[in-house]
C-alpha cells in the first residue's frame, strides 16, 4: 500500500515541488503526518534528491550552451564503467552522465557559457581521461520538451469561461 502511495506522492512532487504536505495529504486522502513521514523517509533514502524547477533557459541566457557527448570507453576489470563515470561526473560542468546501450557507452551532458569553453573541456579534460577511447560532441540547438514539459507558449486554455 505504501509503495503505491509513495509513487503517487512522487508524481505530485515531480509535477510541482512547491506543493505543501497538507495539500498532498488532502489530494491523496491521507493525513498530513503520514504524508510528511513518507516524504522524509524518501528524502533519507535518497529517492527524493532535490526539489527543483523546470526552467526554459533559452528565454534567460542566450549565451548558455549545452553539449551532449557520446563517450566510448574501455571498461576496467572489477569496477566496469563506474570508476570512469565517476571521474567524469566529478567535473562541475558536467550536468548528467548515463551508461547507455548501443554504439557508445556513456552519455555526458556538459553545460558552459561559450562554445569554446565546452570544446576545451572535451579536448583537454574528457578525451585525456585514461580508458576514454573516443568522443562525439553534439551541441543542443533548441529544447522543445524537457522532463515531460512542452516549452512552447501555445498551451492556452481554449475553453469558454462558462459552459453548461
Amino acid at each position: 500500500m505504501n509503495t503505491s502511495l509513495k509513487l503517487q506522492i512522487l508524481h505530485l512532487l515531480h509535477e510541482n515541488s512547491t506543493i505543501s504536505h497538507e495539500t498532498i495529504a488532502t489530494m491523496l486522502n491521507i493525513d498530513t503526518e503520514t504524508a510528511s513521514r513518507l516524504i522524509e523517509q524518501m528524502e533519507r533514502e535518497k529517492i527524493i534528491l532535490r526539489y527543483s524547477t523546470v526552467i526554459n533557459w533559452d528565454k534567460v541566457e542566450s549565451q548558455r550552451v549545452t553539449a551532449v557527448i557520446d563517450v566510448k570507453v574501455t571498461p576496467q576489470r572489477e569496477v566496469g564503467f563506474d570508476a570512469i563515470a565517476e571521474r567524469i561526473y566529478r567535473f562541475p560542468e558536467v550536468t548528467s552522465v548515463s551508461l547507455m546501450s548501443g554504439a557508445y557507452d556513456l552519455q555526458v551532458v556538459v553545460e558552459g557559457y561559450h562554445l569554446k569553453e565546452v570544446a576545451r573541456f572535451v579536448s583537454e579534460k574528457l578525451s585525456t581521461i585514461e580508458h576514454v577511447t573516443g568522443t562525439t560532441t553534439h551541441f543542443k540547438l533548441k529544447t522543445y520538451k524537457f522532463d515531460g514539459v512542452i516549452f512552447d507558449d501555445r498551451e492556452d486554455d481554449q475553453r469558454l469561461v462558462i459552459a453548461p
Binding site: R159, V161, I162
Partner: peptide, 14 residues
Amino acid sequence: ANQMEDVISLGVGE
C-alpha cells in the same frame, strides 16, 4: 465573465 480579465473559471462543464 467574458468581459473581465484575470478571471479564474470554475464555471466550465468540460
